[in-house]
């Protein structure tokens, strides 16, 4: 039996007078990879921002593992086990790669605001960080200030910070944007490797990646989900072809 990890019920969002999200209902199953695709400006990132508490909803509600999170602060939602990466790289530029990742995992491992013990002495933290460095291929860049990394390494770090939190629901906003072919392949392998027992929601423009990874695909156009289903269904859906996919799938 499958359960719902995250559920959106008739979610609306206005920025000023313009309605950007126009009634989205979406149920994302646990331990599945769910892709959201759609043209530029459709509201995909906005949807992520709503799910993670960056913006308040105009109407509707969002539930994480059955609990309503619609009006909670981003940190509360993060603590409840929802992590996200950003479309525009959003890292701690002055800290080393290692410390970026360690910051990402401290809350989850119970270190919270503690100021009476040294971060560097905590073996569990260090070992977990090394594991994530390994996983994301950043081990050789361990002590480099994040701001000095190459673009693709920064993208990898963006994902590494997101993974570090140990959340079981992970939202990735265009994880392969701007990557070369081979880097994309690596990223896809990484995503697949971490997806065990985790719920992944991915916004992605690269259809190869989407159809390769996703268990379910939803198509968002102008703030509305026009189709949702398994990759084959989406591929064959005439509405989707018309609205968005065009020749890309063929």
């Amino acid at each position: 039996m499958s359960t719902t990890a995250i559920e959106l019920r008739s979610v609306h969002k206005n920025f000023g007078a313009t309605e950007i999200i126009r009634g989205v209902d979406l149920a994302i199953e646990q331990a599945k990879i769910h892709a959201i695709i759609g043209p530029n400006g459709a509201g995909k990132s906005t949807l992520f921002n709503l799910m993670t508490g960056l913006h308040p909803l105009t109407a509707g509600s969002i539930h994480l593992k059955g609990r309503e999170i619609s009006s909670q602060a981003p940190y509360d939602i993060a603590r409840a086990g929802l992590a996200r990466s950003f479309q525009v790289t959003n890292i701690f530029a002055n800290m080393s790669v290692f410390e970026n990742i360690r910051c990402g995992m401290m809350w989850d491992r119970g270190y919270k605001y503690s100021f009476w013990r040294f971060a560097g002495r905590q073996r569990d933290l260090t070992e977990n960080c090394e594991a994530i460095l390994q996983q994301t291929g950043l081990t050789s860049r361990r002590n480099v200030p994040a701001g000095l990394l190459s673009y693709s390494d920064q993208r990898a770090l963006e994902i590494a910070i997101t993974l570090a939190s140990g959340a079981d629901v992970i939202l990735l906003d265009e994880p392969t944007a701007g990557m070369s072919r081979s880097e994309t392949t690596q990223a896809v392998d990484l995503i697949r490797a971490v997806s065990d027992n985790k719920t992944l929601v991915i916004v992605e423009h690269d259809m190869g990646v989407v159809f390769d990874l996703a268990d379910t695909i939803s198509v968002l156009v102008y703030g509305e989900i026009i189709a949702s289903g398994a990759p084959e269904e989406i591929r064959g859906d005439p509405k989707v072809r018309e609205a968005y996919l065009g020749a890309e799938v063929d």
Partner: peptide
């Protein structure tokens, strides 16, 4: 010593990028 604690590290994180800090579970205000 304070700079080497989890709190100290998060202080720097808030200084560098307060937006991201919220999404890794920390309240910037706290």
């Amino acid at each position: 010593a304070l700079t080497r604690t989890p709190f100290g590290r998060m202080c720097n994180a808030v200084r560098d990028n307060p937006e991201r800090v919220q999404f890794i579970g920390y309240s910037t205000h706290r």
